[in-house]
Design a protein around this nucleic acid. Structure first.
Lengths: 155, 155
DNA sequence: ATCATGTTTATGGTATAACATGGGAAAACA
DNA sequence: TGTTTTCCCATGTTATACCATAAACATGAT
């Protein structure tokens, strides 16, 4: 069981009529090596699916248990929101997960999907939506931090 | 025995004339793997049934013993209510539990019920009531704490 | 570079197992 | 003995596991 792992890269895969899609091989390796499982839920902020290892949500559950008391109203709302939407998505022997209708609809995904690494988490986007989103993010970043234009150039 | 136990997802099941309802398969797996039992009681704050593993109530009892708020009247009353109301709900070979008239009435459940995951706990709602409740939570949470858009992101 | 070869990955199709749910028999209870 | 609860079988549906092929990739030799 390795200590560090990162969901990375951007991978385009097909989604078949049953909603099946191959989890990128690198992601599968992470699941195997950590012994955890993939959990997905609708992103609260974007029209995309978000995924992470179950370990991360378990950590969140423990934090909530410890920081807020058993009868807290805030805890009530939060846990409903987060865990009511999340669900395990195990992959079969060929490496595919089956996305639910709810998730596909939220992300406007029909016949193909883009996996985007985010470190401890990843996102699954409709390809056209992701193209726009990536553009938006790049422009936003350069607006806020013009100095980043120089990043990566050998000078 | 697995490392993490999280009640998740939102699943709609039918309730038959006898008050029987299938416990979601994922929940049953948790019960089997932990060797604990499902305990249900009327929610103190909402018109719904609340459930968890017996282990969790045991933890609550221990917390009350050890608490510096040993004489907190409120905590005391709340725990009394829970333990006075709680009861084991074992499931049969087909995976169904039989909800009592008391619980069904409190949650206004008749012919169908929605299981909502809450991490270490879960809730059982009348479908229409849950629809309203989910809407309320989403609006409430995003209004009060916009930063919660970041829930689940590593901080 | 180009080609050949073996390996991993993606994807379509299908068989199998698991699940939810209706119904009913046996057991417990009053 | 009537009522309730528990247990088990039967069925349609759905999800899962598995097989087969095709595409992508890495590797080494020419």
């Amino acid at each position: 069981m390795r200590k560090t792992f990162l969901f990375m890269d951007t991978v385009l895969n097909k989604v078949d009529a049953k909603g099946r899609v191959s989890l990128p091989a690198d992601y599968r390796a992470i699941v195997k090596e950590t012994g955890s499982e993939i959990v997905c839920y609708r992103s609260l902020s974007s029209p995309c699916i978000e995924g992470c290892l179950e370990d991360l949500l378990d950590k969140l559950a423990t934090q909530m248990e410890d920081s807020l008391d058993f009868f807290s109203a805030t805890q009530d709302d939060l846990t409903n929101l987060v865990f009511g939407d999340a669900k395990r998505y195990p992959f079969d022997s060929t490496g595919r997960i089956m996305l639910s209708e709810k998730l596909l609809k939220h992300a406007q995904i029909t016949d193909s999907a883009v996996f985007v690494g985010k470190g401890r988490k990843f996102q699954i986007w409709n390809p056209e939506n992701w193209e726009k989103e990536e553009k938006r993010i790049r422009e936003q970043v350069l607006k806020v931090r013009p100095s980043l234009k120089e990043v990566g150039r050998e000078s």
